[in-house]
């Protein structure tokens, strides 16, 4: 690792300045916590099949924790409803609990703190930055909403959970405990798509599951605030690491809004912007905290 020229940022390695100023630990705090959460959840599910300790059974589509708590993915259940099946109460309660949680906390918290595919798309984004790849371009960010509608229509038209045939999220999570089959190719496809064809393509532009959760979290309580935006020195590191870079500008640069709150369902609350900012511009707070300091 080379010495870090302070006050300079490198497009390949955003966050160097933050490390220099805040120290490695504080410059990776949220990333570390997030990986802990993602891997911890995977570990809970894996304890059963690998070690015979059954705290959680099932997978992210539906699970049973400690033999009592049912949790069901509301998007998957919505597909089932669209396909024309009215499920048992267990699944409905499970979906209500999950939906209520993300409605309050923030829909796409699912994406950066739970979804295992995030590990793949983050890896692709990291590799793309480090390799300095500029190839390809991502489809319109609204593609995901059309696809979301499309998956529900496809469910209705085929009378089956059509998207679940290929949904990388389900394939990855289910595959770890029940076997992948050819599903591995879908995941490789997501990685290569993000790496070579479309920067932040899958999670940021295509995934209908992420689209669903972004709608669910539209009015959630937790929000990122660019509270010390006046300290911003335009190093651009936050834009480079953010999986949804378009969400930052309105709050940071006061484009079309006064409030420092990043008030959109598409911020994943990953906290990476807060990590890499050497000026501590960003903080994770609640939506009513309108203070902007300095």
């Amino acid at each position: 690792m080379s010495a870090i020229p302070s006050g300079k940022s490198s497009p390949e390695r955003p966050g160097l300045e933050a490390i220099a100023v805040k120290g490695w630990l504080r410059a990776n705090k949220w990333l570390f916590l997030r990986r802990l959460s993602q891997l911890g959840i995977l570990a809970l599910f894996l304890l059963g099949p690998w070690a015979g300790i059954w705290i959680v059974k099932g997978n992210l589509s539906s699970s049973l924790t400690l033999k009592t708590l049912p949790l069901t993915d509301p998007y998957v259940l919505l597909q089932s409803l669209a396909a024309g099946h009215f499920p048992y109460r267990t699944a409905l309660i499970g979906a209500a609990i999950v939906a209520a949680f993300y409605f309050l906390v923030g829909g796409r918290v699912y994406c950066s703190w739970v979804c295992p595919v995030n590990l793949i798309s983050d890896a692709a984004a990291w590799a793309r930055r480090r390799l300095g790849l500029k190839s390809g371009h991502a489809p319109d960010a609204n593609t995901r909403y059309w696809l979301l509608a499309g998956t529900l229509i496809a469910a209705g038209a085929t009378g089956s959970l059509a998207w679940e045939w290929v949904n990388p999220v389900s394939i990855l999570h289910r595959g770890l405990f029940f076997g992948f089959g050819l599903g591995g190719f879908v995941l490789l496809g997501v990685f290569l798509y993000d790496l070579l064809l479309a920067p932040r393509g899958w999670c940021g532009h295509v995934c209908p599951m992420g689209a669903f959760y972004s709608l669910l979290g539209r009015f959630a309580l937790l929000r990122v605030s660019a509270a010390r935006r006046n300290d911003c020195n335009d190093c651009m590191d936050c834009f480079r690491v953010c999986p949804e870079p378009q969400v930052i500008r309105p709050a940071l640069k006061q484009v079309g809004q006064q409030s420092p709150i990043i008030d959109t369902g598409n911020c994943t609350l990953c906290g990476r912007c807060a990590d890499v900012c050497s000026k501590n511009v960003f903080q994770i707070t609640h939506r009513f905290n309108q203070r902007s300091e300095s």
Partner: peptide, 28 residues
Amino acid sequence: AQFLSACIRCGLCVRDCPYNTLKLATLG
């Protein structure tokens, strides 16, 4: 037909089968 609209592919049935009879189908 109805099964395909109802099953959300969670594998809970697989887990509770004491004889490991059931499997979840993989892509392909």
